[in-house]
Nucleic acid binder design. Structure first.
Length: 694
DNA sequence: AATATCGTAC
């Protein structure tokens, strides 16, 4: 009996104590193993260890695993964790399933998330939030909205997390009306002191381009934090109000809130957009003081700001003084040189870059195209396609700009084919570049057809591009008619008026030109330097020099373009002598003449027959001003010598010029040779012309 | 964060 009882006791003892102890040890062993793998960053190994253990483990472990799957976007492992959980736990806690939904959402597998969400026998507010957040962050705002409605229907209360996600979706899909309703809810639920939600409202209003409401909301926030300030600066910048963006940034500094690196960056981009060098330099000072100089985000924007404000040297100084340079700072400086017309230096830097991406390639390509170096651009493009095998919407837009610059209709059509194949048809920027290409290559019909196709997604840039095509084809009447039509769909911009005035100028349509000028005054259009230049050009082309001078009087700042317009305006109005006097005044004012200026000067010399002075200008343009003569300058010189019978000089010039004379240059010179019986050069030219025929 | 479509003088 005692023996038996002893053995029974023994048995019970084993069952009660010894066996459970083994079980705990095994579970503990597995847990330790899993945690060890996780600490070593070996998620897959951790999950397969979990899978080999056929019983439920502590819930906190699953939570931990989901969290890591989430941050590593490990969908396969996440599915395994969920399956282990639901296999061994008949009623898993809701919070864990919510974590699973979050994880699936973060991995971008919204169907998995939705399936789990639907199958949950019980949901709490967190489940709805997890699902809504998944849709909101996965780029499915409409799904998020409908779930939000569903949640209200079944009587689950929204909380601040719900509102934050829904506002994010509103911002992504520019849902202004819904945003206003959410705004009301937020106030009603008593979240008016919640800085995060209120900052989101500022963001939404800004994204919906209602800056007045954004600002109102901002002003209601008692303690705006760094993110709030960042949002308001960024939204002003995006809405084209660089001035206000810079202003808000300076207020942020006054409020003693330490800017984020992106806020510095936004403020500097805002400075670039309004060419506010002084303000930019002040921000540079703050950057230095607060120790952001070595921050890649800040330094690249700083370089960019100096370059855009015309201080390339200062930009490159920052670049060279940087301790570590990343891809973006490299791209900034390459782009800086490229966009300042210094393509040689830019290319050297480009070749030195330790790594490149599509943006760096695009930046270099844009530099060539911007300085009209078409052939270099073409070579570079081939190299790019060869080496990177990749292109994006920016590359395609640049390719179209290149085709337009070369007036190469065939190439343009080929690029159109590319666009079609790569599925960039609905990209607005590419579409507008395509429109412009057809216009510039002289195919107005294709431009119009494409403009029609774009009717559901075109913008004001599309209208401007089409107007330009009409203007280019000397169809100013039709351009003005389009202008009326345009106003039914969108508002005109500076570009619109620039184009219209040019159209009037080129067709000497004084009446229409005055109408456009009147429209601008009546509608309070700000007439800056560009539009003043366009007006001046129009009036002087229309031989209305009195009005032209009237416009000139009201302009406080004269740039090269304006001076060039005045100089050419004098030439058109048989006042070449005054053009030459103006050149002196311009130089005195400290404005650097460019290739267009010298073209104007040489045209004036041709008109006045000033051979020696013209030759002197031609020399000084290279030696003193380092402006490289182009076709039109050579053309002027040949005309100058030919018209005035300077045959020895003509011969010397034609035979030593570094580029091949064009057929029209040769014809001008040949006429002179015939007139002055200068057969020595005449024969040489005849030979050249014959070469052209072969 | 860095590239990016339309305008003025030729």
């Amino acid at each position: 009996m005692s023996e038996t009882s002893a053995s029974v006791f023994n048995h019970i003892f084993h069952n009660r104590n010894l066996y459970p102890q083994v079980e705990i040890t095994n579970a503990q062993k597995s847990i330790n193993k899993i945690l060890g793998y996780l600490n070593a960053g070996r998620l897959r190994k951790a999950v397969s260890t979990l899978f080999r253990f056929p019983e439920l483990l502590p819930y906190s472990l699953y939570a931990h695993l989901f969290q890591i799957c989430c941050s590593q976007r490990a969908i396969v492992e996440a599915r395994k964790v969920e399956s282990h959980l639901v296999t061994f736990s008949p009623t898993p806690p809701i919070f864990l399933l919510n974590r699973a939904i979050e994880t699936y959402g973060k991995c971008g597998f919204l169907n998995d998330a939705r399936e789990l969400f639907e199958e949950m026998p019980q949901k709490d507010g967190g489940s709805w939030n997890a699902m809504i957040t998944a849709y909101a962050q996965g780029g499915f705002p409409d799904e998020a909205f409908s779930l939000f409605l569903g949640m209200n229907k079944v009587g689950v209360y929204a909380n601040k997390i719900t509102f934050a996600s829904i506002l994010g979706s509103c911002a992504a899909s520019f849902e202004l009306n819904l945003s206003r309703q959410i705004h009301g809810h937020i106030m009603k639920y008593g979240f008016h002191r919640n800085v995060i939600l209120c900052s989101s409202l500022v963001d939404v209003y800004g994204k919906c381009q209602v800056m007045s409401d954004a600002r109102k909301m901002f002003n209601e926030i008692r303690y705006p934090n760094a993110i709030t300030w960042n949002v308001i600066v960024r939204r002003y910048l995006d809405n084209g109000d660089g001035r206000e963006a810079v202003l808000m940034f300076s207020r942020m500094l006054s409020a003693a809130i330490r800017p984020l690196n992106f806020t510095f960056s936004n403020a500097l981009v805002a400075c670039s957009s309004i060419y506010a060098l002084k303000e930019g330099m002040q921000i540079h000072g703050v950057v230095t003081k607060l120790g952001f100089l070595e921050n890649d985000v800040v330094s690249s924007s700083l370089i960019n700001m100096y370059v855009k404000c015309g201080e390339l040297y200062e930009g490159s100084r920052i670049f060279y003084e940087l301790g570590s340079k990343d891809l973006v700072t490299w791209t900034s400086i390459v782009s800086g040189y490229a966009m300042s017309g210094k393509t040689l230096e830019a290319r050297e830097l480009f070749n030195e870059m330790p790594e490149r991406n599509i943006i760096s390639w695009n930046a270099m390509l844009a530099g060539y195209i911007d300085s009209s170096k078409w052939l270099e651009a073409l070579d570079f493009l081939y190299l790019m396609l060869d080496e990177t095998k990749s292109l994006d919407h920016v590359t395609l837009s640049l390719m179209l700009k290149l085709s337009a610059g070369l007036s190469d209709h065939e190439m343009g059509k080929q690029v159109h084919g590319y666009i079609y194949r790569y599925g960039f048809h609905f990209n607005l920027m590419v579409g507008n570049a395509l429109l412009d290409m057809y216009g510039k290559c002289g195919n107005l019909n294709n431009a119009r057809v494409w403009f029609g196709i774009m009717s559901t997604w075109r913008d004001k840039v599309s209208w401007n591009a089409l107007l330009t095509s009409y203007a280019r084809h000397q169809l100013s009447e039709q351009a003005l008619a389009m202008f009326s039509e345009m106003q039914l769909e969108t508002k005109p911009t500076t570009y619109t008026f620039g184009t219209l005035l040019a159209a009037c100028a080129n067709t000497s349509a004084l009446y229409h030109g005055k109408q456009v000028h009147g429209y601008m005054i009546r509608h309070g259009i700000e007439i800056g330097t560009v539009l003043s230049t366009a007006l001046l050009h129009m009036y002087s082309k229309c031989r209305c020099i009195g009005y032209a001078f009237q416009v000139l009087k009201g302009i406080p700042f004269r740039d090269v373009g304006l001076w060039n317009t005045i100089i050419f305006g004098c030439c058109h109005n048989r006042r070449a002598k005054e053009a030459l006097e103006l050149f002196g005044a311009m130089v005195e004012e400290g404005i650097k003449p460019n290739h267009v200026t010298f073209h104007g000067i040489l045209v004036a010399c041709v008109e006045e027959g000033l051979v020696e002075y013209g030759a002197q200008c031609f020399k000084s343009m290279m030696n003193e001003y380092s402006v490289l003569p182009q076709l039109e300058h050579y053309n002027c010189m040949i005309e100058l010598y030919s018209r005035n019978g300077y045959m020895d000089e003509l011969e010397n010039f034609v035979k030593t010029m570094p580029i091949e004379p064009t057929i029209s240059m040769l014809n001008i010179a040949l006429d002179a040779c015939k007139k002055h019986e200068y057969s020595k050069l005449g024969e040489w030219i005849m030979e050249k012309i014959n070469e052209f025929n072969y």
